[in-house]
Amino acid sequence: MKKVPFIAVEGPIGVGKSSLAREIANYYQYRLLNEIVEENPFLGNFYKDIDGWSFQTEMFFLCNRYKQLEDIEKYHLNKNEPVVADYHIFKNQIFAERTLQSKQYEKYKQIYYILTANMPEPNLIIYLKAGLNTLLERISLRGRDIEKNIDPAYLLQLTKDYEQFMGKFINDHPNVPVLTFECDHIDFIKNKADLEAIFSKIDDQLFINN
């Protein structure tokens, strides 16, 4: 049976997820799903005081992403409309485990697994990774007010958490292909050849899956 393409672009803050997802959507004429970020009313306080605002922040993201995926499944995937998202809901586990206290995290996990049971899963993951200097530079360039207080140490730890999580994900989900791109060495916004190289890799996977 032919699979409806559902691509998720993932990676740490500032790596270029939204930009690449938008390019993919335009190139393949897929429905674009953008995660809700700046709409989170707790995020600004979170970057100032992670311990004090982590639970509210993570619960807002979880509930909104759940609703987005529910709508995407109902109105698009079930109607054979391909989708590209600039996130995978698994990222909630990465952030929550890093920021929540142990008792909060245990409660959070219970809610997470209830909400995500039987949710649509991407059949292709694109994992973007980059070093701290690249991430800080790109965060600065996009100029979001709520990101001005991001602690570089937190961002560095987040990149390590992503790397560890993705290694486990690849081992645990052998049937879900993961394309990894080192964004310290490519610029798919300014360099058309870099973007075309990414499209070529995606083409290969779409052909295999279908």
Rank of each mutant, 00 (worst) to 15 (best):
I50Q: 13
F90D: 07
A96R: 03
K2W: 06
L141C: 10
E73W: 04
K109G: 02
Y113M: 02
G14K: 02
I202N: 06
I36H: 00
S54M: 13
E70V: 01
L141E: 09
L128W: 01
Y105K: 13
N209V: 02
E70P: 01
F60R: 01
I36N: 00
E73T: 02
H76V: 12
A85H: 04
A130D: 04
N209Y: 02
L20E: 01
Y113P: 10
K103H: 13
E39F: 02
T99F: 05
V83G: 05
I125R: 04
M1K: 12
E106R: 09
N149Q: 09
E73H: 15
L128P: 01
K109Y: 05
I202Q: 11
F207K: 08
A130G: 03
N209L: 04
D145L: 00
K79I: 11
I7C: 00
E73N: 15
E196Q: 15
K190W: 06
Y154L: 11
P120M: 07
A193M: 08
A25V: 10
I126E: 04
K201P: 02
F46A: 15
K103D: 14
L156T: 08
E38K: 11
E70A: 07
I139M: 05
K201R: 13
Y113W: 13
Y28P: 03
Y47V: 01
G143K: 09
K192T: 10
I150A: 02
E38H: 09
K48C: 14
Y154R: 12
Y108T: 10
A8G: 12
I150Y: 04
I146V: 07
K2M: 14
I146P: 04
K74M: 15
M1L: 10
I7R: 00
N80Q: 15
I139N: 03
R31D: 10
K129G: 07
L32K: 11
F46G: 14
N34Q: 15
E137W: 02
S54K: 13
T57K: 02
E70W: 03
G52T: 11
D145V: 02
K3Y: 09
P122D: 02
S102K: 12
I111V: 13
N209F: 03
A21T: 11
Y154K: 09
N210Q: 08
S200Y: 11
A25E: 11
Q205V: 07
I36D: 00
D51N: 12
I89A: 12
D161V: 05
F55T: 12
